[in-house]
Amino acid sequence: MRRSSRDLLFKIYIAGVYVFLYLPILVLIILSFNKSRWTTIWEGFTLQWYVKLLNNKILLNSLKNSIIVALASTFFSTFFGTIGAIALRKLEFKLKEAFEILIYLPVIIPEIVLAGALLSFFGFVKITLGFTTVIIAHIVFSISYVILIVLARLQNIEKEVEESALDLGANEFEVFRRVTLPLLLPAIISSALIVFTLSIDDYLITSFVAGVSSTTLPLQIYSMLRTNITPEINAISTIMLLTTTMAIILSQKLLTSK
């Protein structure tokens, strides 16, 4: 085969993979504007599914729940995880290696195992399932990501940067505030974003530990998928896809422009 035609085939293959990655997303967005209720055939443009969405109190309430859970768990896991990573960088103690393995474990073990463990635990200590249990669960599966991301960044920030600032007479707190923290900020923001998307998207663990009144959006969407698939799901999905993508693009722009 000639070189140029081989290159062309390669390019077509690559294009095919990109189509594969985006096809489901595109189909979903297009169908959310489709008049037809049942089929995938295009029957004209409509916004009626979006209007219906605005009147669907159950769905909107679950969206509200999801946002509350995601904000709370992102705040706590980012805050605790960041200061935890800073402490780990500075401290040396006997069980440090064991503790580091403990940090890796929530990332490594299958989600279903964590779900079962948390459900068993809440039953054992007799905490009623609800917002608190969902938020705790989300903090548990998020905090390791924050610690690992911030820790990786801390290792990259040259120790000398801090030392030279100390040599110049700044006290430790001042060095932290003026030097370390600004350099750390991109890592903190990006870990917060990752953790936020993990939380807002989680189905499995939430389905184990949620109570009747703490149904989140993924749980609501899931139960709608089980009963009957309506174009309203396409509409809410489209809104979710677009908002998370926009938020990430925006934050990336902010981070790289500095």
């Binding site: 997303i25 979903l28 807002i200 998207d201 979710m240 896809l241 998370t244 993508t245």
Partner: peptide
């Protein structure tokens, strides 16, 4: 795609 909902 990784940033968008896996469920969706």
């Amino acid at each position: 795609p990784l940033w968008t909902s896996f469920l969706i």
